[in-house]
């Protein structure tokens, strides 16, 4: 029976638990025994989905103490000899995985978005060159297969319910001072653009009229998103940035207003079902992947479409009154 360790990041508990799917894809449903390292105070449903759960004795470890968590992973690996160690590619996970890999003398593949096998070999697929290429990478050497996995790419569906056996881990001798959290401000609980079926996204071409997007988003029951250019100029928050360096989205409809479609932006919308792009340049890269290209000024388009929708709504309500 293979052994798979999943690190549970307390800032992304559900996404971490979903990494059980990675174990399932490599070893099959019954081919592996699952271990969760719940170093933080939050571990959600991990206790009912894993076979074993490691818990830190005498208090939790904060996820930013990446050096200690890496030591903890090394310590556990020396005892349990994991076949695979899977870490979510979150802010802290991206620091923990490389540190642990270095300690274990193991190859590490970052930001994995696809898994395959070739005989006994695990094939890990990851985007490179801002998402324009896909690299298939393997780990060499005797160490465990190690990867950080992009959150929300894999979902653990039809889970097998278990009751995890809790194993206490004493980290007293592993603690490495160096980092202190001075202040933490939770971001507002705004809806995540990844959950919206319709995205109205603005780029450099609508920077002055960005406020109009909100009205169109409302009319189409969607949310506003933005390109990196708009975010870099401080006109929109980073939380709504689409692209390889922002969020990877998969809405049913993506309306790209004044967005030329740089490689890194396009990498973020390749799973959109329909794309309408509005651009003064119909040769812009985004146009070739669009279903409809509207050539012209984005502001005029938004205003025209809003008027059209409103006119139709007025007519409908008039009809109803009659």
């Amino acid at each position: 029976m293979k052994r798979v360790l999943v690190y549970i990041d307390e800032d992304a508990v559900e996404d971490s638990i979903d990494l059980l799917e990675v174990g399932r894809l490599i070893y099959g449903d019954k081919g592996f025994c699952s271990y969760a390292l719940a170093a933080g105070v939050r571990y959600g449903a991990a206790g009912s989905l894993f076979d074993y759960m490691f818990q830190v004795k005498n208090g939790a470890l904060p996820n930013y103490d990446t050096a200690t968590i890496a030591r903890c992973i090394e310590f556990l690996h020396r005892i349990y000899c994991f076949d695979a160690i899977v870490v979510p590619a979150t802010h802290c996970g991206r620091m923990i995985a490389p540190r642990a890999a270095m300690r274990l003398h193991a190859g590490l593949v970052a930001d994995v978005t696809g898994i395959g096998t070739d005989g006994d070999e695990v094939l890990m697929v990851r985007p490179a060159f801002s998402g324009r290429m896909l690299a298939t990478v393997v780990c060499r050497g005797s160490g465990p297969v190690m990867m950080s996995v992009r959150p929300r790419v894999f979902t653990y569906e039809e889970p097998v319910l278990k009751s995890a056996e809790i194993i206490d881990v004493d980290v007293q001798d592993m603690k490495t001072p160096g980092i202190q959290l001075i202040e933490r401000r939770e971001k507002s609980e705004a809806r995540d653009i990844r959950t919206s079926e319709v995205l109205i996204s603005g780029g450099g071409g609508v920077i002055r009229d960005f406020h109009l997007l909100e009205r169109l988003a409302e009319a189409l029951h969607g949310m506003v998103a933005a390109s990196r250019k708009v975010v870099d100029m401080g006109k929109a928050p980073r939380a709504i940035q689409v692209g390889q360096s922002g969020k990877i989205v998969s809405p049913r409809l993506y309306i790209a207003l004044g967005i030329s479609g740089s490689a890194q932006h396009v990498a973020g919308i390749r799973d959109a079902e329909y794309i309408i792009s509005v651009n003064t340049n119909r040769q812009a890269p985004i146009c070739s992947m669009s279903d409809i290209v509207v050539e012209g000024d984005s502001r005029a388009f938004v205003e025209g479409l809003l008027n059209r929708i409103e006119a139709s709504n007025t007519q409908n309500s008039g009809d109803q009154k009659r």
Binding site: M133, V137, R270
Partner: peptide
């Protein structure tokens, strides 16, 4: 400790 097996244009 890692090796790129394939590099494909996405």
């Amino acid at each position: 400790l890692t090796q790129v097996r394939r590099l494909e244009v996405d």
